[in-house]
């Protein structure tokens, strides 16, 4: 029922996590593990691609909050890309656009990591 996956891959020194399915209180621990593994191997430049994510609840949003400070303390960031409107609306409702960079295209977020001053 609660089908969800989070798969990380590397692109130009940036880690891209592709989310798929339904991110709720049941599946959020899977995403926590993915973040923990990346941080455990000192990888702090992270782009999360939401293209295949159908649904998110506050438990899912909580995962991004749980890791952001540690990641930014290590000169990294979590950038969020390719959200469907229904998913973006939930982030928007909770004020995330003020605190996270959200891009339409994955390549824009990766470029921002490559050229942070632009």
């Amino acid at each position: 029922m609660s089908e969800f996956s989070a798969n990380a891959s590397e692109r130009l020194d940036v880690q891209v996590i592709n989310l798929n399915g339904y991110l709720d209180a049941h599946t959020a621990p899977q995403l926590e593990s993915t973040f923990s593994e990346l941080i455990g191997s000192n990888k702090y430049k992270i782009v999360v691609n939401f293209q295949e994510l159908k649904y998110i609840s506050s438990a899912g949003l909580g995962v991004f909050m749980a890791f952001i400070e540690k990641i930014r303390d290590n000169k990294g960031d979590i950038k969020l890309v390719e959200m469907k409107p229904n998913v973006f609306n939930i982030f928007d409702l909770l004020g995330f656009p003020l605190l996270y960079e959200i891009y339409e295209k994955e390549s824009d977020a990766i470029n921002r990591f490559q050229n942070p001053k632009e």
């Binding site: 506050s58 438990a59 909580g62 909050m65 909770l94 995330f96 003020l98």
Partner: peptide, 14 residues
């Protein structure tokens, strides 16, 4: 939310 983020609180958003 801004204070919430600063306090590093997780959960309670539901």
């Amino acid at each position: 939310m801004e204070i919430y983020f600063k306090q590093k609180r997780v959960g309670g958003l539901g």
